[in-house]
Write a protein that binds this DNA or RNA. Structure first.
Lengths: 148, 148
DNA sequence: GGCAAAATCACCCGAAAGAATGACGACAGA
DNA sequence: TCTGTCGTCATTCTTTCGGGTGATTTTGCC
């Protein structure tokens, strides 16, 4: 939920800035979706072009094909593997924070829940991954593509 | 986190644009948003890269520019970074085993030393990396190319 | 509306981890 | 030979983890 607010805020900010800068404010009402979509598409395309330029500046085409595809879409399909393990979203969320080196207390603070809750989630995740320690859980998570 | 917002925003924008442009709005209900987002993002990125390749013509360099992509690189240069942190070989060895999810006791057994020694090494490594927990040390180690 | 899953929190307790400190032998280099 | 680094080990103490158990609330779905 919080993420949505962030996303909309960010997009809105970018959009409005771009529009303002281009003096196209009158188009917002009628064509906002097209415009902001087009802008993002153009941004993405530009990013691709930049990547292509950057990579072809000194290298041959072989490396270019392999590298940018995985880095352009950095880790989205966690949902599938997550369910393969029977891990819930919240549990994966906790696991991600564990992988970032946070303590249970810090995670609790970040997620606005009690430390006991974090412990419950982490315990369940360890159980589902067959891990005995958090470091092991992180390792398993990375190996199975559950974590970036 | 922040990156996620950006990515989702971009993907979402591209998706909506693509859908709208192609008048395929009815497909949204039936298909997952991730798939279309990934497809469209990949399409635009690929298009951008292709454009970049076209525009730059033929690259002549042979050497592949070092791209920060963890895949494909089998990881060899630890010696250099190790010394940048002032970490000894033994300490890095312990850190590697920690990263594999082993407990201090297991590490002690594997290295044929006492558990106290392992604790000393790990404490020193944490100190040199500025980490407070072993998970954090692992994270830092991976980020700085100290660990695979 | 009701059921099942998920999320939340609590308490206890043992094990593991980590901080702080001190010490000792091996070894390389000045 | 003296010095610094490294590796080793110990002790004490505090904090954190993790297991086990049970409970309540929230949420998603039929």
């Amino acid at each position: 939920m919080k993420r949505h607010v962030l996303i909309y805020g960010l997009i809105g900010g970018v959009l409005i800035t771009a529009l303002k800068w281009a003096e196209y404010r009158f188009l917002v009402i009628e064509h906002s979706i097209e415009i902001y979509g087009g802008l993002t598409a153009a941004t993405f395309a530009a990013l691709g072009i930049w990547l292509g330029l950057k990579l072809t500046g000194k290298g041959q085409g072989i490396a270019v094909k392999e590298v940018p595809v995985p880095s352009g879409v950095p880790f989205v399909p966690d949902e599938k593997r997550r369910e393969d393990f029977g891990i819930t979203r919240r549990e994966l969320e906790v696991l991600e924070l564990i992988a970032q080196g946070m303590s249970n207390r810090e995670i609790a603070g970040k997620l606005y829940v009690s430390e006991n809750t974090v412990k419950t989630h982490s315990s369940r995740v360890f159980d589902k991954l067959g891990a005995k320690r958090r470091t092991q859980a992180v390792q398993f998570g990375k190996e199975s593509g559950l974590l970036p």
